[in-house]
Simulated scan of single mutants.
Amino acid sequence: MLPHEWIAQYGALVVFLNVLGASLGLPLPVMPTLIAVGASHAIGSPGSWAIALPLSLMLAAAVLAGVLADLLWFRGGMRYGARTLRTVCTLSLSREACVSRTERVFERWGVRLLIVARFMPGLSLVAVPLCGAMGVRLRSFIWHDCAGVALWASAGLIVGAAFAARIQDVLSTLSALGEQALIGLAVAMGLYLAYRYGRRVIAAACWR
């Protein structure tokens, strides 16, 4: 089975698990996954309208996963407040995504911050529990969080569909390389996860 065929078949599950894990704080490359899924569906579709339904399903999977994970952090912020924020900051990979800075941004934008938070590395993980700690209503949180996840996931899927031809060349090369490509990807992923884990350790040390 070719890479794009595999992604097209299991794309919804891959997107759901990837977004869920990343939203919970795992160092997963979600945007590359969304781009690859968008490209794979565009490659296998005869026209632009034919990819509307599968991409909508991928988008729904991303929104469902993102909101489910964010609800856990939101509830944690409501119940434990500053303790949850400190925990989240140890997972955040951006030094700027600290509690004080996020509080200042939240004071200016309020819950609307969730609409753009996922485009800013590290901000989303802090903004979500902060909404809970600040007493944002659950209904308002869900609506704004859904809008933010949908906008962010749509960007990745659309970019993948728009550049499907170039991405197809990459996927075809990976398919031709076979086992060597899989080993290379595994090594690259291992190095990537090690890098992000290292940054996470440094971020945690800064909070001690």
Rank of each mutant, 00 (worst) to 15 (best):
A62T: 14
H144Q: 04
I167E: 06
E96Y: 03
L157I: 05
S154R: 05
Q168F: 08
I35C: 04
V116T: 10
R79D: 11
I7Y: 00
M1R: 14
A60S: 07
Y195F: 03
A60T: 07
A39V: 15
S175H: 01
E107S: 14
T33S: 08
T33F: 11
L182A: 13
L193D: 03
V67P: 09
I142E: 02
V15W: 06
G156D: 08
R208I: 03
H41T: 07
R200Y: 00
R79F: 03
R108Q: 14
R166P: 01
V187L: 15
V99R: 14
G135I: 12
I51R: 14
L193K: 00
C98N: 13
A65I: 05
E107Q: 14
G44K: 12
A50V: 04
D70S: 13
G178A: 11
G76S: 09
Y80S: 11
L191I: 08
L59Y: 12
P54S: 14
L138Q: 12
A60P: 06
G11P: 05
Y192T: 02
R199D: 02
V170P: 02
H41P: 00
A150M: 12
G156W: 13
A181N: 01
V128H: 03
R200F: 00
A205H: 03
C146W: 01
I142W: 01
N18C: 08
A39T: 14
A22M: 14
S40Q: 08
G66A: 10
V37S: 13
F163S: 10
F106V: 02
L123T: 01
F106E: 08
G190D: 11
R104G: 12
R104T: 15
A147E: 06
L177N: 02
W143N: 02
A50E: 09
G135S: 12
E107N: 14
M120R: 05
A165P: 02
L193F: 11
P27M: 09
A203V: 02
V19N: 02
M58S: 04
Q168K: 11
A162M: 07
G178I: 00
V116R: 06
V116F: 14
Q180H: 04
F119Q: 06
T102L: 12
A165Y: 06
W6P: 01
A155P: 10
A22L: 09
A69G: 13
R208E: 08
A155N: 08
G110F: 08
Y10K: 04
A69E: 08
A147P: 04
F163G: 07
L72S: 07
G190C: 15
W49D: 14
L28K: 08
D70W: 04
A22K: 12
G148N: 04
A188V: 15
V67E: 04
V128K: 10
R79K: 15
I51G: 06
V14G: 02
L28E: 04
